[in-house]
Design a protein around this nucleic acid. Structure first.
Length: 554
RNA sequence: UGGGGUGUCGUCUAAUGGUAGGACACCAGGUUUUGGUCCUGGCAGUCGGGGUUCGACUCCCUGCGCCCCAGCCA
């Protein structure tokens, strides 16, 4: 399956290597604009670009496409580097900035002017829109289209030196106002923006547009294969036009379909809205599809990379199921996470025949999938907590956990039998009185009798009180983008804060970034805000749970 | 509407003129001191209509659906 199933981009590179189109060189780049945090959609582009380079022994640059000072910030530049590194990729010394090429780009612009391929236009943005035509109507030539080279050179120089206000003039390529591809109707190359750039400060007041800048960036960096998302497909003729007119090194732009995930939004604009309007706690809120959010949630870089390897690369629109991402997450976590016991919604259990005021230590396996993780001791006594939903007074047929008169196993401990249910005024069980079978220590009965359930538990005497953030998807609609207003389909229960959780004592040794399995519940990791005094855990993902599926269905 | 792109199981993705395969999801069973993991089996697809061919997801014609473009955003 892996050998033959090469995606269409790998095949193009194969062919280019065969024909020596780029002298068998492979050099890609990941070119984010620093105007927001990276999300899982970017991860696809990151993995694609770095993996292609690695596969062919080439290199991949990290390049900030910082051509618009208005929306870009240094905070984003730093966050993006953190995220790419965390994902496991290295750009070595190839940290690039489009802004480093402003001088060169400007010279190239002058060259186009001299060749008669660009001109300064005085039309306002509204007038340009008017004269651009429409999908079906041809555009009209600008009255400034036939200015002399000398005048264009002079005006462009004045634009650059700050003689004009924002929007007063632009530099346009002179192509064809009747072109069926709207991108070719004399597109804008430079606009005037009097704003402080996070790197070049006030050195410039003209900034290159994406179409003009991007091919130059690729060319300057000697990129071979310029991979971008599908909406740039009809920008490719323009990408090619600029490089051909300039007659400089010409990389190949190749477009692929971006990643979409169900139950989430992926546009930076929408994610920024969630952050700015406080629907979430920040770009790294564990419910966000951002790399930083997923990291905080307890995702591993490997899970994301594995997912990307399986997602495939093609050109058709797609919406991946969250379930597939979670499959790879669990797959990875299952192998590497240590197991601990924790009770989220405690129900007290008193072992009536356990010796008073005593306790003992029992041995528990840290990770059944990895014997090198070893074992640990856990304490047991006559007062314990189990999970509220592990007990039912009047259980349905297929419920085989604890119930009056029924015997179950406490993991790594003893068999216990429930004898009495203490209830509050409203009839809710608040305490169970059970007896234990001393001969079942460790969890096996010498007489060979079986129990149908094994419950997790903690010792009431030394367990730690903690808060657990239980996260669910941010949206209730599988396709929030198709709603008129994505904010109206938000899941109002995406965060449940459980503050009465009781954790096995050794859980105090875990810190942020260390995801652990709470047996029978799921994977959890300490939040950035955790402390010894007030431990806070995030639920990364639940375990697969065929019982809850059954319970819900009935 | 002009241009560009794209239609294969529920969701992704292979097969490039020669048995429509894989993964996830779902269903059933086995193992199990996690109703987890693991193992086994099952369900399920070529957008429609013509044509070429011994043979079509693949080539041709035609129709239809979906996505992108009218920022001085990227």
């Amino acid at each position: 399956m892996t050998d033959k199933q090469r995606n269409f981009i790998q095949r193009i590179v194969d062919e280019d290597n065969l024909s020596e189109k780029f002298d068998k060189r492979v050099h890609t780049r990941f070119p984010p604009e620093p105007n927001g945090y990276l999300h899982i959609g970017h991860a696809k582009a990151i993995c694609l670009n770095f993996n292609i380079a690695n596969e062919f022994g080439g290199q991949c640059n990290l390049r900030f496409d910082d051509t618009n000072p208005i929306s870009e910030e240094i905070e984003y530049v730093n966050a993006i580097q953190d995220d790419v590194s965390w994902l496991g990729y290295s750009w070595d010394d190839r940290l690039c900035f489009a802004s480093d090429y402003f001088e060169k780009m400007h010279k190239y612009a002058n060259q186009l002017i001299e060749q008669g391929d660009a001109y300064v236009c005085d039309l306002s943005s509204e007038e340009i829109r008017q004269s651009k035509g429409s999908l079906t109507k041809e555009g009209k030539n600008s009255p400034y289209r036939e200015r002399s080279v000398e005048e264009n050179l002079k005006l462009f120089s004045q634009m650059t030196s700050g003689a004009f206000k924002d929007g007063e003039r632009i530099l346009r390529a002179k192509i064809d106002m009747s072109h069926p591809n709207l991108n070719m109707r004399d597109p804008v190359m430079y606009r005037i923006i009097h704003a402080n750039h996070h790197r070049t400060k006030d050195a410039w007041c003209v900034y290159p547009t994406y179409d003009w800048a991007h091919g130059l960036e690729d060319s300057i960096e000697n990129i071979t294969h310029s991979l971008c998302s599908i909406e740039f497909e009809d920008h490719r003729p323009l990408y090619d036009w600029y490089l051909d007119k300039l007659d400089i090194y010409h990389p190949q732009q190749i477009e692929f379909a971006r990643l979409n995930l169900d139950y989430t939004v992926m546009s930076k604009r929408k994610l920024k809205k969630l952050v700015d309007d406080k629907y979430v706690s920040g770009w790294d809120d564990p419910r966000m599809p951002t790399i930083s959010g997923m990291r905080r949630r307890g995702y591993t870089a490997r899970a994301i990379r594995d997912f990307m390897n399986e997602v495939g690369v093609a050109k058709r629109d797609n919406i991946m199921e969250l379930a597939k991402l979670e499959y790879h997450l669990r797959q990875d976590l299952n192998k590497i996470c240590e197991r601990r016991m924790a009770v989220l919604n405690p129900l007290k259990v008193v072992i009536t025949n356990y010796p008073k005021n005593s306790s003992e230590m029992l041995e528990a396996i840290n990770n059944p999938e990895d014997s090198s993780a070893g074992v640990r001791d856990i304490s047991f006594s006559g007062e314990l907590y189990i999970e509220q939903n592990d007990f039912m007074e009047d259980p349905p047929k297929k419920f085989f956990r604890l119930a009056p008169g029924r015997e179950v196993r406490l993991r790594y401990a003893y068999f216990i039998t429930c004898n009495e249910v203490i209830k509050d005024d409203k009839g809710n069980p608040i305490e169970l009185h059970c007896t234990y079978d001393r001969k079942t220590k460790g969890g096996n009965a010498p007489d060979g009798r079986k129990v149908k359930a094994t419950l997790h538990w903690v010792n009431a005497q030394d367990s730690i009180n903690a808060t657990v953030n239980s996260y669910d998807r941010l949206f209730s609609d599988p396709s929030p983008d198709s709603a008129k207003d994505f904010l109206t389909v938000m899941n109002t229960n995406s965060l449940e804060v459980l503050s009465k959780c009781m954790l096995e004592k050794s859980l105090s040794e875990f810190g942020p970034g260390e995801t652990v399995q709470f047996e029978r519940l799921g994977y959890f990791c300490p939040d950035l805000s955790t402390s010894q005094e007030k431990p806070v855990f995030n639920r990364t993902v639940t375990l697969r749970d065929s019982w809850s599926k059954f319970a819900k269905g009935k």
